[in-house]
Write a protein that binds this DNA or RNA. Sequence first.
DNA 1: GTGCACATGTAATGTGTTACATGATTAT
DNA 2: ATAATCATGTAACACATTACATGTGCAC
Lengths: 185, 185
Amino acid sequence: MAKTSSLEYALLGLLKQLPQSGYDLRKIFATTPMRHFSDSPGSIYPALRRMQGRKWLVAGAEGGNARKRQAFRVSRAGERALVEWLRRPITREDVIWRNQELALRFAFLDGNVEREFTRTFLDDLERELTDYTRELRDYARSMKSDSGPNTGLLAFQQGVEGYEAQLAWARRARKQLKEASYESR
Amino acid sequence: MAKTSSLEYALLGLLKQLPQSGYDLRKIFATTPMRHFSDSPGSIYPALRRMQGRKWLVAGAEGGNARKRQAFRVSRAGERALVEWLRRPITREDVIWRNQELALRFAFLDGNVEREFTRTFLDDLERELTDYTRELRDYARSMKSDSGPNTGLLAFQQGVEGYEAQLAWARRARKQLKEASYESR
DNA sequence: GTGCACATGTAATGTGTTACATGATTAT
DNA sequence: ATAATCATGTAACACATTACATGTGCAC
C-alpha cells in the first residue's frame, strides 16, 4: 500500500471541485495562495499519471492527438480515496509533521463529507493542539532558566504561538459553524 | 553549487553549539521540540557524511574501531557555511516555502552573528510578512462573495492568521531585544 | 551467556526539483 | 512566417523514508 503524497490529494480535491487540465492546475499553484505547492511540470504531470494508473482519474476523451489540452475528472474510486483521506483520524503526528496537509483536508471537507463531520474534525484538532501546546509550554519552562532573551528561546516561542493561533482559530471556526447551522433552520 | 538541505544546517547549528555524535543528534530530534526533523538513521548519517565530504565537519579521532561512538565538531569552513546561511537575505519565497527554516535560522543567530544582525533579521522578516499578509487579505476579499462560512474560506483564514501571529511575534521580539540591550548598558 | 540499549550503516524505493525538449495555438 | 504562449512530457539528480543489517558494551 503505497503512500499517497499530499500533492496528489491536493490535485484530487481540486479536480473533484472542477475537472480541468494539468496546465490549469499548475496555474492555480502558480497564482493563488496554494503557492506552497510547486507548479513545476516535473511534479504535476507525473502525479496525474500515477493517479490515472490507480484509476482515480479519467482523462477527458480528446481526439487521438497528444500535446493537446486534456481535462481530468475524478472517478468513483478517486472519490472514495479522497473521502478516506478526509476522514482519517487526526493524530499528534499530523499536527507535528503534516500541519499544512490538515489545513488542506479541512478546506476540502465541504461537499465531500456530511456537515457533522466538520465539527468532529475541529474537535479532534482542538484536542491534539491542546495536548501538544501543553507539552511545548512545559518544555519552555525547562529552558526558561537561561539568562535573558536569546534567539533560541524566542524561536521556540514563535512555534508555540503558531500552534496557539491555530487552536484559537479552531475554536472560532467551530462556533461559526454552529451559528450557521442555526441560521439554516 | 549543490543546495544544502535544511536538515544539514540543523545538524551544523547543533554541532556548532556542542560537538556530539550522530546518535546524540538523533536523540535530540526524537525527544525535543525539534521533532519535526526525522530521527531516522537513514537521513542523519548520510547527511553527516556529506558534510564531512565538504570538510564542514571533522570526526573526533576515535581509535580505529568503527561502530564506536564518534563525535563531530564543526570546522572553520563549516562555521563559514553556517554564517553564510544565517546571513542570507530574507525573501518572500522563504516566507512561503521555507518558513520553518527561517525559525531555525533565527534560533541559531545567537553566538554566530553580531547582535545588530538579529534586529536586521527581524526587520526583514516583518517587511516580508507585512507584504505577504496584505496580499493574502486582498485575495480573501475576492472570495468572500461566496455564501456563508465554507471550509475552504475558513482554511484560508487559518493560513492568514498563522502569518499574522508570526508578524506579531516578530514585532514583540524586536521590542524585547531592544529592552535587553538597554539593560546591558 | 543472553538480552537490551547503544551506535552506525546501507539498500530499495518513491518523489520533488531542475533543466531541458517538444508540439499546438494564437496574435501580429 | 514568426514569436509568444499554451500544454505536456522526460531525464538526471538529490534526498527522505522505510526496513533491514551489524557490531559494541553492559547488566543480570
